[in-house]
Each structure stands twice: as structure tokens, then as C-alpha cells.
Design a protein around this nucleic acid. Structure first.
Lengths: 243, 243
DNA sequence: ACCTGAACACCGTTCAAGT
DNA sequence: ACCTGAACACCGTTCAAGT
């Protein structure tokens, strides 16, 4: 099979190492470097020398820099914590925990949020997270592919919240504290007094407020879908029972 | 004021040109080049020569490449069409139109979706779009800062849907048709038979399905909030009337 | 006020050659 | 099977110098 779709996950793996560098080791070093210096600062040369190897040595374990970034991103998906460890917890609690976990994980590794727009999240860890979430929806009563769609809805919202926020931090050169955010927003919203007034209310309340508001809406909407579907299901089964 | 926050939008502008290159001209050329060759292919040198100038000439009009990218991104926000031109249309129609407009605009300029995770969207056009949406929510009855939060919820969902999809296209080197997507997903979901089964149902239905499902949920959730708020408002005012 | 060219300090990647 | 070094074709940005 040709690797028409250019991704690590779509080409045959090389057999594991015997000695020297390993792909795992390279990816771990890359994540460390990314955490320390950010996406712009990662170069094959720097990573190589961090590992005591020539930059070009990496190319035996990895086809190119892009593949390395895909592997590093999947590593971050692997850090998104379990949410459904407590089976007694309801769907809403589980989703709230998941959403905050995902948010916190991406914020802790800001480069990963940027990468989400650059390389596909189709590695094993990304799938593990996605399937865990899908399963939770299925167990809550979402039928067939709706469970998958529902999981995509929650994840999209979180990603859509975090990614632009990371861009702000990137411009600022690090996490933006409340006061700095306020100064920036005052400056930039000069032509929109109503928005500026909103900022004055919202920013002091903390940066989770918009996230929680939106998440609440998303979860309400999903629960409404679930109710509608189970009601319809009951109606259909009682109709067939009547026959 | 020092420009602590490193963004075009936070430093004093230079007075407009008299002759030769202009910032507008540079930004327009950048957008054209980005549309034609993508984010990775944009270089100051290439852009300069496209304009018949030395690469370094650009640095008089723009502090650095990052500023240029901020300007280019804001240009795309400027392309997001009006949704509220028909005042008779309800909130839900308006939001649906907005969401699809934003999605289509980003997909038509894929580099812009990637940029959303790289540079902040705090330019005049981004604010224009945000304020138009906020105003629609306010007119529909969302009180105070809730209108702003509601607008952020919708935009987050759309961004969170489009950004990862762009990453897929980026890996493939262009838009992914249904058949290619199916082949890729079959390959990559090998360990998750339920997800694979969902793909077999969903992919043939077209790529707007997940978007429409999620958007429906988000809008349902927002409408529920609105109902709850107006009910509470009515209850409060009737309570005060009783006094 | 605006543009240029040379120069600096980097990049990712290929490939023949080594062990 | 794995690693190296040299080499290629690029980068973004600075800055003295020009008009």
C-alpha cells in the first residue's frame, strides 16, 4: 500500500531498535524540549544534540519533522486523564471532568494546541481518548453513531476554546495573567464599548467563566438530544407492543 | 506605552504611505500567496519578490513575519459574511448561517484555521464579526455579558470543528474527498471497531453531518439558557410587582 | 520616508560513506 | 541496522548605506 496520506499512522512501522536511539526516546525528548522552549524553538538539530546525536540521525527513526510532531501530539492525547473511573457518576459529571481535563492538558503543553491545527490527531492515544468518550455517551443512551457525534461535539468545543487562547499566550510569550489580559483587552476593544464593558465584568471573574458557560450550553443541548431520542424510542416500542 | 504584548494591534501605527509599497498591498499579496501555496510556503523573500521588492523592504511596513500573519488572519475574519441582514429571521437561523459562513470561510483559506492557534484574533475585523454576533444574542434577549459569552460559545464550536479538519487536509496535501477519507479512517481505526462502524455510517452522509449535529446541540443549549433567563426575569418582575 | 544588499545565524532534508 | 558529515537550498532578521 502506498502512503498517499502523509501521516506516521498510515505507514508500516520499522521493527524496534536493538541499541542506540529509539523512536520513543526521541519523541520523549521532543516533548521535553517543546515544553521547555515551545514549538518555534524545536529544530531537528537542537533535538539531535540534546540526545547526543547528529541531527540527521533522527531521520532513520522518523521520516521527517512533521512525523515527529504527530508523535509528540499523540503523546499529549495520552496525558488526558480518565474521566469515567467512577461509574456511579452521571454523564454530566463525566463530561465536565473530561472537558476540564482536556483543557488543562492542552494548556499545560501549549504547543500541542497549536499542533492540533497542523497535524492530524489520528494516533493511538487520540483514538483511546475519543473512544472512551464515545463509550460514555453510548452507555448513557446515545444510539449508534450519535455517541460518536456527541463526543465530537464536546471535544470540538474544548478545542475551539483552548486553541485561540493559546494563540494569545503565544503572542504574549507566556501565560497571560488577569491584569495583563485586562490591559490588552481595554486597548484592543476601543471601538466596541459594549464588549469592553463585558470584559470588565468577565475578566475579574477568572478565565474559566467563558469555558463553563459554553460547556454548560453544550451539555444542556446534548442532554436534550438524549431525552428526545429515548422518548422517541419509548414511543416506538410501545407502539409496536400495541400491535 | 511599551508594547509588552507583542501584537500588531497593540502598537502605534505608522502614518500611511505616499508611494511605493503599502501595508495593505503587502497583506493582500500575502493572502494571495497563502491561498495559492499554503502557510509553510510563505516566506518574506518569496513575498518580497512577488511584489517586485527586496525581502527586507517589507520590514519597514511590518515589524516581522508574525505581524504579517496577524494582518492576514484579520483579513479572513473580514470575509465572514453578514448573517443578520434579514432582521425577520430568528436567532436560530441567524446563528446557523453564521456558523456555516465561518466554517466555509476558514475552509476556503485553510491556512487561516491553522493561524488561529498561532496568532491572536484581536484585529478590527475579528472584533466586527464578534460584535455583530454578540449584538444578535443581546437582541434575542441575552442579558449583559451573557450575550458575549454566548457568541463565544458558537464561535468556539465552529473553530473546534474546523481546525482539526484542516490538519487532516494539511497532512493529505489538499481537500480530502469522501473515498480517501474512508480509506484513511478504515486504516487508522483498526483497533476500534465501533468507531469504524460509525465511520461507515457517517462518512457516506457527507462531512457536514458532524458539524450540524454539534451545532444543533449548541443552539439547543443556548436557547435553553435564554428561556431560563427570561423566565427568571419574568418571575422576578412579577414578584416585585406583587410587593 | 522608504528601499536595498550584504551578512548573520540559523533551518529541514538528502545522501554517500562509514560501522 | 543504524549513525555520521558534508552539502544543498533554503529561512527570518539586522543594519549600514543609499535615495
Amino acid at each position: 500500500m502506498t502512503n498517499q496520506f502523509g501521516s506516521v499512522w498510515t505507514r508500516a512501522p520499522r521493527r524496534p531498535r536493538t541499541t542506540g536511539l529509539s523512536r520513543d526516546q526521541i519523541v520523549r525528548a521532543a516533548v521535553t524540549l517543546l515544553d521547555k522552549e515551545g514549538l518555534d524553538a524545536l529544530s531537528m538539530r537542537k533535538l539531535g544534540s540534546e540526545l547526543g546525536a547528529g541531527a540527521t540521525s533522527l531521520y532513520w527513526h522518523v521520516a521527517n519533522k512533521n512525523e515527529l510532531l504527530e508523535l509528540a501530539l499523540d503523546e499529549i492525547w495520552g496525558l488526558v486523564g480518565e474521566a469515567g473511573s467512577d461509574p456511579a457518576a452521571g454523564l454530566r459529571d463525566l463530561l465536565t471532568t473530561y472537558a476540564h481535563n482536556l483543557r488543562a492538558t492542552l494548556l499545560a503543553h501549549p504547543w500541542s494546541a497549536t499542533l492540533i491545527g497542523q497535524v492530524p490527531s489520528i494516533g493511538p492515544q487520540a483514538f483511546r481518548v475519543g473512544d472512551r468518550l464515545r463509550r460514555a455517551f453510548a452507555e448513557a443512551g446515545f444510539q449508534g453513531a450519535d455517541a460518536y457525534l456527541a463526543s465530537g461535539t464536546v471535544t470540538s468545543f474544548v478545542v475551539g476554546q483552548v486553541v485561540p487562547m493559546i494563540a494569545m499566550e503565544h503572542a504574549h510569550g507566556g501565560p497571560v495573567d488577569r491584569e495583563t489580559a485586562m490591559r490588552l483587552l481595554e486597548q484592543v476593544s476601543a471601538d466596541y464599548p459594549e464588549i469592553r464593558a463585558d470584559y470588565r465584568v468577565l475578566v475579574p471573574e477568572g478565565n474559566t467563566l467563558g469555558f463553563d458557560f459554553g460547556l454548560g450550553c453544550v451539555l444542556d443541548g446534548l442532554e436534550a438530544r438524549l431525552r428526545a431520542a429515548t422518548d422517541a424510542g419509548r414511543a416506538a416500542s410501545s407502539a409496536s407492543a400495541r400491535r
